[in-house]
Design a protein around this nucleic acid. Structure first.
Lengths: 190, 190
DNA sequence: GAATTTGCCTAAATGTTTTAGGTAAACGCA
DNA sequence: TGCGTTTACCTAAAACATTTAGGCAAATTC
C-alpha cells in the first residue's frame, strides 16, 4: 500500500484549509482522514486527539498573522502603520475565516505560552512608538487597539453590520481616523 | 411514567445553564437529556436539532443582554451612560460566560432577523444622544463602541490580557475615559 | 540484505445526532 | 364519567465522530 507520508505539519495545514472551507468548528479528524484517503485511526499516530489538531491550527494561524503584521509594519509609522496593521487583521479574516476563528481559539496555558501572541503585543507596542504615549497608557492603548481590531473584524464577519448603511469600508476608514486622533490626543489620567 | 413536561423554553433555559457550567461548545442534546432524566430522542419533539438548541440559547442570551442594557441606560446620559452600558457587557460575560459565548454564535439570517440585535444597536444610538454626533458619524461610532465592548470582553475572557500589568480593571476604566474623550471630540471627516 | 523503526492498517468500544414508529398519559368534550 | 384526540415520552436503529490496542509491511539504517 502506497504511504501518504502524513506529518503533524501536513495535517495542520490541511486542517487549516478545511477550516477555511467549512468553518473552524466543523474541522474533524474524520474529515481530515477522508481527505488524505487514510483510515481515521492512522491520524492518531500524529495527533494526540482532535483538541490537539485544533490547537495546532490555532497556533499556525497566530504565526501567519504575526508574520503578516511584521511585514506590514516594516518601514511604516504613525497613522500609516496603524492602518497597515489594522488591515492585516481584517484582510486575514476575510481571506481565511476558518483560520481567523482558529486564532481566537481558547488555548490552554501551555499552548498559549508558546504561541505568537507575544509577538502581536510587541508589534502593537512598536506601532505606538509613533505616538506620544508612556506607560501605563501605552499598555492601555495596546489593549484598546487589540479590542477594536478583533471586535470589529468579528462583528463584521458575523454579519453584525450588514444590511445597514453606510457600508463597512467607510466605517472602517473613519474608525481608523478616530483611533489615530485618539492616540495623538490621549486623555490625561483624571 | 411521570412526565417531565419538557418545553422548548425549559430546554433552552437548562441549555443556557449548561453552557455557563461547561462552555457553550460543549452543550449537547445528550447531556441535556441526561439532566432531565429522559431519553435523548424525546428532546427531538421540542427541538429541531442540536443547531436549533444552540440558536435558541443564543437568542435567549441576546434578549437578556438587551434587557440589562435597557435597564442600565434608564436615567443616565453621557459618560455615565457609556460606563453603564459597557459594564453590562463585561459583567454579563463574567457572570454567564457560556451565554455570552452563545450571544456571539453565528445566527442564520432568519434567526438574526428576529433577534434582539436591533435593540442593541438602538440603545447604543440612544447613548450617543449625549454626545454631539450626526449621521453618518453616529453609525460609525455605534460600530466602534460595539467593537470595543465585544473585543475587549472577548480578549479579557480568553485570557489575552492575563499575566501582565497593569490589571484589566484599570485598563477598562482608562479605555472608557478614552472613548468618552473621543466621542466628545470626534474628528471631522478629512 | 538484515534489523529496526515507523506508517498505516483492522477491530472494537464509547458517545452524539437524528429518524421512525409505538404506547400511555393528559386534555377536551359530550 | 367515559371517549376520542392530542401530546409527551418511549424503544430501536442507523449514521457518524472519537479514541485505544495491537498487527503487518514499507521505509530507513547499518
Amino acid at each position: 500500500m502506497a504511504r501518504v507520508r502524513l506529518t503533524p505539519e501536513r495535517l495542520t495545514r490541511a486542517g487549516a484549509e478545511l477550516a477555511d472551507e467549512v468553518g473552524f468548528d466543523r474541522v474533524t479528524v474524520s474529515e481530515l482522514a477522508r481527505r488524505f484517503d487514510v483510515k481515521v485511526a492512522s491520524l492518531y499516530s500524529h495527533l494526540r486527539n482532535s483538541q490537539d489538531l485544533r490547537t495546532r491550527i490555532a497556533l499556525l494561524a497566530l504565526e501567519e498573522l504575526a508574520d503578516r503584521a511584521a511585514d506590514a509594519l516594516a518601514g511604516r509609522a504613525g497613522k500609516d502603520a496603524l492602518t497597515a496593521l489594522a488591515n492585516v487583521y481584517r484582510d486575514y479574516a476575510r481571506e481565511h475565516p476558518g483560520r481567523y476563528a482558529a486564532a481566537q481559539f481558547r488555548l490552554g496555558p501551555e499552548a498559549a505560552a508558546g504561541s505568537a501572541g507575544v509577538r502581536h503585543a510587541q508589534m502593537t507596542r512598536a506601532l505606538l512608538r509613533g505616538y506620544d504615549l508612556t506607560e501605563p497608557d501605552q499598555t492601555h492603548a495596546v489593549r484598546l487597539l487589540g479590542s477594536v481590531f478583533h471586535g470589529y473584524v468579528s462583528l463584521e464577519m458575523g454579519g453584525g453590520f450588514s444590511h445597514s448603511a453606510p457600508d463597512t469600508q467607510e466605517t472602517w476608514s473613519r474608525v481608523l481616523d478616530a483611533l489615530d486622533a485618539l492616540l495623538r490626543n490621549w486623555p490625561a489620567t483624571p
